[in-house]
């Protein structure tokens, strides 16, 4: 009896692998990995300006960022004056904020993960997520050709049934030659466009060509956007683990 079960399991695994292999046919898989690995490295450090345009206000923040591995990052705000020194530490699935004005560290409750980070159109979840699109989504190329004068490839990703993702669908469009992303459209579970992320101004940072400007626009508020501009970005830098500690957060 046991042998039959084992046989069935092997068969199931085999069938599953075949399905996976056929689904993972390049270049879609490579493209998604390229997008996922775009800013990822064993460690990085950089300086970013974030411009937030909201229908009620607009503001600009400058911050330094450090990251190590897949799940540790630290962001420290340099300006404006009111928020100077405010820091966000991400360690695994947890987000901690340091508030210099009151000299306290607070942990973000999981119920607020989908809330906006610092008033931007990024959610706290965006900072934490470490999933790889190729692992969590079923995907296929849905467009290949010229668009706005450039050769692009677009891949439609729909989440696998048990994937812990908030989106109903993601459309990733990349430059066909460089595999650098041009645009990512995020759809909710009703498959309505929720937000769009655009990549532009490709620059070379630390030997890598990456878009230096990211613009995120919510679909329901056409006049709003958050623009992230990389001023400086270094990859594979030597970072001490202590940087990503609660103690360092309070410095």
């Amino acid at each position: 009896m046991k042998r039959i079960y084992a046989g069935a399991a092997v068969l199931a695994l085999f069938v599953f692998c075949c399905v996976s292999v056929s689904r993972a046919a390049p270049p879609a898989h490579e493209i998604l990995d390229a997008v996922d690995d775009l800013y990822r490295s064993s460690s990085s450090s950089g300086r970013v300006t974030m411009r937030i345009v909201n229908k009620n206000w607009q503001r600009e923040l400058t911050m330094d960022m450090w990251s190590k591995g897949k799940d540790r990052s630290l962001i420290r705000i340099l300006s404006p004056k009111k928020e100077k020194g405010t820091a966000t530490l991400r360690a695994g699935n947890e987000i901690w904020n340091y508030l210099p004005k009151v000299k306290r560290v607070i942990k973000l409750p999981s119920s607020m993960m989908s809330d906006s980070w610092m008033g931007s159109h990024f959610t706290n979840d965006d900072l934490v997520k470490e999933s790889r699109m190729a692992d969590d989504y079923e995907y296929g190329i849905n467009f290949e050709g010229e668009r706005e004068g450039a050769r692009v490839v677009s891949i439609a990703c729909t989440p696998l049934p048990d994937a812990a993702v908030v989106w109903g669908r993601i459309d990733v469009t990349v430059d066909a030659a460089t595999l650098i992303p041009v645009k990512i459209d995020y759809f909710n579970e009703d498959l309505e466009l929720t937000r769009t992320m655009e990549f532009s101004d490709i620059k070379e940072f630390g030997g890598r060509k990456v878009p230096s400007v990211m613009t995120i626009r919510p679909a329901d508020e056409p006049d709003e956007k958050t623009v992230v501009i990389y001023e400086r970005l270094e990859f594979d830098v030597d970072l001490d683990d202590g940087i990503f500690s609660l103690r360092n957060l309070q410095k």
Binding site: I52, N54, N56, W57, Q58, R59, P80, K82, E83, T86, N97, L99, K101, V102, R104, I106, S116, M118, G119
Partner: peptide, 12 residues
């Protein structure tokens, strides 16, 4: 920790 009317982060 709150978001203020002008978009900045307020804490107290």
């Amino acid at each position: 920790l709150v978001q203020c009317a002008d978009g900045s982060m307020g804490n107290e």
